[in-house]
Structure formats: structure tokens, C-alpha cells
Design a protein around this nucleic acid. Structure first.
Lengths: 206, 206
DNA sequence: TAGATTGTTAATCGATTAACAATC
DNA sequence: TAGATTGTTAATCGATTAACAATC
């Protein structure tokens, strides 16, 4: 077992991987540290240093092969396989997430989609049938899902989170405006563009 | 003019501010560095150090007043006012964004919503009328918008981005799976939960 | 007073980046 | 060869955190 990466390195490698996967989708076969760095908003030396600490992945004077570098980074991050996720909420946001290819492109598969509205249960969104929120815990346990996405109204967020945790989910992505209270062994990642906007605006204005 | 914050400090202050604003919304009036740190996934000493470098905002043995701390951080980040944003795309994702209070809570106001589908133009989403995408550049210039959000299909992303930049937009939030090519003075922030999932999963599995 | 929590120090550790030789 | 870009060094700089006195 190799040493655990630092937070910074793992975060940047994830960003490089996203850029490489998007590049591949657009038909790009070769890329330089300079090009990666522009999309990732980091220093080009940083990119080369991050990569070269794991091996010599590029060719001097040429750059990196996109396909090969994707495989190498997936190896470092142990992210080559497919991971099941549970999505709660089949409203506008949930439907947009279900229909997007963002998750598939990175090896994530939406294994189940839930909603509490009887009018939505049984309908389909993307390729998925909407299931009753009352079955979240049981279904997650059956499917062995450890990743959950919350795309519900704020008032339902804590309840949905509790059910996911009941079902064995350990990592939550929270798209709502609600602060969640959860056990210590569960990690919550909040998706809130306003937070990043504040930060972006600060650097733009100073 | 005070010194510019480092990237790390500005990013963390933005996170603290989000947590404080969400706490206030839930009626919480006082909060400790320990509680902030749990929601922000950082060390409690880090929180106190980040704050205390700008002043003595807390009370020993008690904690921080939520309302007061919000005002202080907004002061540091120059983010107290209202900022107009342009949203492109009135599909599921755009509608979800328009209907959410995430932006309003942080002082962002969606000043205009655009779509290229004739069937959607003139309809309303949230409180907004959907305007024709052909008018993006002109409307953004009129409104003085510098912040744009892309919630369009991947194939339309580059075109919509170009029009926003034409209209004077300097900061773009890209919800699509498309890598954008833009002038150097424009900053792109990509919202891609899959990237953060890879990273979260790595730390969960190791 | 007793308990809690801040503000600050001091020490360590990792991140960052300019510069350039290596090499495709 | 000439041009481009990687891999790596070396130096600096900032981030991190345990520990604790101050104080509410």
C-alpha cells in the first residue's frame, strides 16, 4: 500500500483528470502541462511536479498522451472502476443531474433515483425509474451504495440524508442550502456555487 | 487598500461565510470555531487563526455571534453588496438555479435569464422572463454584468460563453462538460461534482 | 469558582515556483 | 539542427496544528 496523497495533490489530480477526460471527449490526443495548467488555474510547473512524482508520463518536447495519462492518474487515485451512487430528488435539479453525462464520463453510475412525491414515483428521468423515498435505506443497503447526492428541497434535506446514512452511505453531496447534522464517519461535500462566486469576485475586484 | 488575501484564506473565509449564512437562516445566533470547523472540514485552530488575523471577533468561553461575524467576513471579502449575474439556459438545470435561493442568500441577483429555444423565450422561471440568447451580449453590457453562469447543453457552451464575454462578462461558472477556450482576462470556474467525488472517494478508500 | 472557548505562540511541514539541463 | 516541453533542483514562502495562557 503506497502512502496516502496529501489533500492538495489529490484535489489537483482530480482536476487534471476531469480536464483530460473532457479533452478526450473533444478528440484531443496530446496535451502539454501548459494547456492543463490553463484549464486548472494552476502553475504549469505544479502540474509537471504533481505528475512526475509518480513516474515519467510525458515526452520532452511533445507533451502527454491524453489516453495514457488518464489511465495513470486513475491508477494513482484508484478510480478506474465503476461506482454506484444514489440520487435523491427528481425535480428540476435531480432530472438535470440524471440526464447529464458528467457522472458516467467519470465512472459513476446512478444506481437509484428517489423522490417522495407520489406524482413522480414510477415516472422515468434519463434511463431511471423514480423510486419511493421511503425505500431509500433498504435499497441503498441492497445496492451497496456509499455515495449519495441530495437534490431535494431544503426542508427535506436532513430527512433524506438520515435515510441515506441508514442505508450505509458514507459520502454525501449536498446541493441544498441546508446545513446537515450527521455522524462523524460520514463526509458531507456541499455544492454551493455562491460560495465559489464570492471567492472569484474577491480576486476579480482586488 | 489592504493586502490581498492568499488563495487559501479567501477560499476558507468564503466557506465560513456560507456556513454562517446557512446557520443564520436556521435561526442559530452563536457558533464556536469547533462547530464551524466541522461543517468546513478543517481544523478548529485554522478557523480561529484565519479569523483572528483580522481582529478579535469572538468572546472567550462563548464563541462567535453569527450576525456579527457575517458582517466582518463580508467586510474582508468586500462582498456586502448585491451583484448581478446572467444565467444562460432555462432547461432543468437553469430552472433549478433560478428557483433556488442559494444566490439571493449570498447577495447575488439573477439579472437576466437566457435560452435559445423559441418555445421557452417569453416563459417565466422563478421570477424571471426567459430572454432570447441572441441578445446576451447587448443585455449584459446594458446591465453591467460581470458574472455569468452556463447551464446549457454541451454543444451550446462555447457559443454562449463567447456571447457572455462579448457582453463584458469576466467570470464564468461552467456547469457543462465542455472545456472552454476564452481570453486570458476571463476566469472560468467549472462546477463538476464528479471531480469532487473522485477526490472524496480516494480519501474514503485509503 | 469551574467550565468553556478564544487568541496566539512556536515549531514543523508541505506547497510553490523560477530556472535550466535533459531530451524528444 | 532548432524548437519545444518535460523532469528536477534549489530556494522561498505560506499553511498547518498542538499546546496553552487569557478571559468570558
Amino acid at each position: 500500500m503506497s502512502d496516502k496523497l496529501t489533500l492538495g495533490v489529490a484535489a489537483r489530480l482530480s482536476t487534471y483528470l476531469r480536464i483530460l477526460i473532457q479533452s478526450r471527449k473533444q478528440g484531443i490526443e496530446s496535451i502539454s502541462s501548459q494547456e492543463i495548467s490553463e484549464h486548472a488555474n494552476v502553475n504549469p510547473t505544479q502540474v509537471r511536479r504533481d505528475l512526475s512524482s509518480f513516474g515519467k508520463f510525458g515526452k520532452r518536447g511533445v507533451g502527454y498522451r491524453v489516453e495514457y495519462l488518464i489511465a495513470q492518474i486513475q491508477d494513482i487515485l484508484h478510480s478506474g472502476g465503476t461506482h454506484n451512487i444514489a440520487l435523491v430528488g427528481a425535480g428540476h435539479l435531480g432530472s438535470a443531474i440524471a440526464a447529464s453525462s458528467i457522472f458516467q464520463d467519470h465512472g459513476f453510475r446512478i444506481a437509484a433515483l428517489f423522490d417522495s412525491d407520489p406524482a413522480r414515483i414510477g415516472q422515468t428521468a434519463g434511463d431511471l425509474a423514480v423510486e419511493d423515498s421511503a425505500t431509500i435505506a433498504a435499497r441503498c443497503r441492497d445496492l451497496g451504495v456509499i455515495l449519495g447526492v441530495l437534490a431535494v428541497p431544503p426542508a427535506s434535506a436532513q430527512g433524506a440524508a438520515d435515510q441515506l446514512v441508514d442505508g450505509g452511505v458514507k459520502i454525501l453531496f449536498n446541493y441544498t442550502e441546508t446545513l446537515l447534522s450527521l455522524p462523524d464517519d460520514v463526509t458531507v461535500h456541499t455544492i454551493n456555487p455562491a460560495e465559489e462566486m464570492l471567492y472569484a469576485l474577491y480576486f476579480h475586484l482586488t
